[in-house]
Design a protein around this nucleic acid. Structure first.
Lengths: 124, 124
DNA sequence: CAATATATGAGACTTGACTCTCAAATGTCA
DNA sequence: TGACATTTGAGAGTCAAGTCTCATATATTG
């Protein structure tokens, strides 16, 4: 049904070793050294299949290219550093979202994104 | 420095008359009847200039095309109806965002997007 | 109204993020 | 190991959201 290849392993290894979501391009860049010659089409194909199988989650953030991270069981949001472009996962969430809902509507899910400067960049 | 034209007026009128952000395509569709023959390039140009002048705000939402709305003085977020695709502005915000921040980092702004079904769609 | 600065529309072009095609390479199973 | 199903890489193609070009049209100013 599905063969195991160096390329596939490399893509998943890259995501496993990063603590933050990566763009397809970033995955390709990091997979290159692990699996020389890996092509962009393969990375896109693999990411797509992994998202379909639930192994990977596609993270959409306002104004940014789609990013990908390993599926994890806990709900989380992201911090986007506007100076180094890193996307850091955040722990925890907020209360009070239902209060914002228009009456009569139903909430299925939500996104919270905090933009700013990460600690490394703050320390210039 | 800048001439006043039917086209420009039409674009702004469309935004003034909508209580929700619109995509450039939606602005074009609505501007057509007001200003027959208006071209896409003009709509894009006008929106871009209006954003640069601060008159209009570009709203970026995860996974959606950029939307545009008249600049307003109050901070707000959006509700995205997954069934009719409308984007409704929300009033109010939440507390507790600073608690989510990684230590040492600085928050510049944030986005909250609630996805779900609007009241009209809930009532099938 | 004339002079001239600016704006417009059509359509070609660009960019980013993919997706498709297909011959060659590779994984799996007997 | 052989048969053959699946995957791969390169490069062309696609799609959405714009941007650019330039001849023509329109706004503004004197």
């Amino acid at each position: 049904m599905s063969y195991q290849t160096r390329q596939r392993e490399a893509v998943l290894q890259v995501l496993r070793e990063e603590a933050q979501p990566l763009s397809a391009q970033a995955v390709l860049d990091r997979a290159g050294p692990i699996c020389p010659g890996i092509g962009a089409a393969t990375v896109f194909r693999t990411l797509k299949q992994a998202v379909e199988s639930g192994e990977v989650v596609k993270v959409e953030l306002p104004g940014l290219a789609p990013h990908y991270e390993l599926a994890s069981s806990h709900h989380h949001h992201f911090f986007v550093c506007e100076s180094c472009e890193q996307i850091l996962p955040l722990q925890g969430c907020v209360n009070g979202l239902p209060k914002l809902l228009p009456s009569g509507s139903r909430m299925s899910h939500h996104e919270i994104v905090i933009f700013g400067e990460c600690s490394t960049c703050v320390a210039d």
